[in-house]
Amino acid sequence: MTEVMTLIGGRSSKQGTALCAGKLAPEYIELTSVVEMNVEDMARLGLSNNSKVRLRTPVGEAVLRCKGRETKDLPSGILFMVYGPMTTQLMAGDTAASGMPISKNIDVEVEPVPEAGTGT
């Protein structure tokens, strides 16, 4: 099953500190491969913390691990992740003559990715 949700790209302090060490360091790559999702949405989709999930837009897709957030912090239907190599896969190159590609509040299709061997 897939659902359409709204993806917000942003920054976090962990990303900021990891950035100083280098964007090719494992910590940075790990940080930029996690998507935060509303816990109720995750339950509905049969996802738990660290489950793999595929995000897809008309230009590309990315497979990420998800992390639950309570509704008071992240409403249903909203996803958050820090900018990085994964978000670039989902962004369209068109800027509507502004120079700025849409980097926040992107509509994405969300699809759980079954993991081999875990049986879940």
């Binding site: 280098g22 964007k23 090719l24 230009v59 590309g60 900018y83 990085g84 190599p85 978000t87 670039t88 896969q89 989902l90 962004m91 369209a92 190159g93 590609p101």
Partner: peptide, 25 residues
Amino acid sequence: ANFPKAAIEHLKRIPVISLDPKTTL
């Protein structure tokens, strides 16, 4: 590391000169 996919694809096709203290994508 942060441009849309289509832009990054073009970077791979042309000569790029980079100045940076660190190794980056």
